[in-house]
């Protein structure tokens, strides 16, 4: 996995996951969000439009991130899940835990409101 992190004009911290989010690399994502939270970021979008697949460790990392973000009074949205990736969230009921947007642009709009 590689990811790119950028801050949008409206103050949303956008992380794009490229490749897989699995047991071997999930800690990098958790660390990136933890650092951004420490630096005062409060609006997060994690985008999966360039992601191949996610395993249960990756889902678990997202659950941990979501919890941490909420505890800090921050907001998180996930975006860009294709039909296959979305099925993983539906099977695990995590589609009810996360705010999901079709695109990063929609997620940013939702976070900016």
């Amino acid at each position: 996995m590689a990811f790119t992190a950028t801050k949008d004009d409206s103050g949303v911290y956008l992380i794009r996951i490229e490749g897989q989010l699995i047991v071997g690399n999930r800690q990098e994502l958790k660390a990136a969000v933890a650092t951004a939270l420490e630096q005062g970021e409060r609006k997060f979008c994690i985008d999966f439009s360039r992601t191949g697949y996610i395993d249960s460790s990756g889902l678990g990392a997202l659950v941990s991130i979501s919890k941490k973000v909420r505890e800090q009074g921050a907001e998180l949205r996930l975006s860009g899940l294709n039909e296959d990736l979305r099925s993983l969230f539906e099977l695990t009921k995590l589609d009810t835990l996360f705010a999901l947007s079709d695109t990063a642009e929609h997620a940013i709009e939702g976070l900016s409101e």
Partner: peptide, 15 residues
Amino acid sequence: LPDELDRPNGRGLYL
């Protein structure tokens, strides 16, 4: 279950 979704582990075998 709704009150368990915050648990980070335990989904692998089920998946």
